[in-house]
Design a protein around this nucleic acid. Structure first.
Lengths: 122, 122
DNA sequence: CCTTAGTATCGACGTTTGTCGATGGAGTGC
DNA sequence: GCACTCCATCGACAAACGTCGATACTAAGG
């Protein structure tokens, strides 16, 4: 379990997921745009990943130790690690090593980017 | 192909996808909430479906004949039909028979619902 | 060192998914 | 009725996915 010592706000700024695509309702998606976008939505297409992301996004500290993510979602440690990797590769989450532990944090900008893709056309 | 005759705005109002879940960043998702949400995001997690939805959402008529959706995405007719079914079951799209053809339309409210799930927490 | 705790990776397994050709059903027009 | 078009469903197949136990790796502490 994570030790609550020296808790400085851990919210590592991140490479930024470039705004890949215009809103769905503005332009018809090209094949490549669609592929990139789909990959990111697919990352949200799993209950466990959604719960993980939710846990990170609601964290008051801005980040959560991986060790504190296993029990809440009720899956094995390897499975949780696997899902965190997918979220990280989708740019929705960042990780930072702190000694033995790894702290994960949500990337608000990436979520916002996805959100804008669903924005209504005016 | 669809015949452009008697084009009255075809936008059948729909059962409404109830606002399933609070924003990710507000409350930590329960198992069931996460499952429902994930199912809807998963519907967006495929390039073909994303392009289909994009085609529908950008349609000036508000709806598109299924026959006009096959060629743009470059997949076989059964495959397109399959994806349209998934979008329909996710509540993102509606279908309406018009003679031999079936017209599909995006459901803005469902998309907006998903969008709000990604909303930042103030 | 050696042990211990926290993570990531590997290998394997069953399930789900995307895809297509073939087929069936619904509707139109002759 | 018959032929034709459009669409959905079926059956099959390969690929991708979610899951776990076992294992390797990394960092801290005796």
């Amino acid at each position: 379990m994570s030790v609550p010592i020296s808790v400085s706000p851990v919210v590592p700024a991140q490479p930024q997921v470039a705004q890949c695509c215009a809103p769905l309702q503005t332009t018809t998606l090209g094949a490549q745009e669609a592929a990139e976008l789909a990959a990111r939505f697919a990352a949200l297409g799993d209950p466990v990943r959604l719960r993980l992301l939710s846990l990170l996004a609601t964290s008051t500290h801005g980040a959560v130790c991986a060790c504190d993510l296993v029990e809440p979602v009720g899956k094995s440690q390897p499975t949780v690690s696997h899902h965190l990797k997918i979220l990280r590769e989708a740019g929705l989450v960042t990780s930072e090593r702190r000694g033995t532990n790894v702290w994960y944090a949500a990337v608000p900008a990436a979520i916002e980017s996805l959100r804008q893709t669903l924005a209504a056309g005016s």
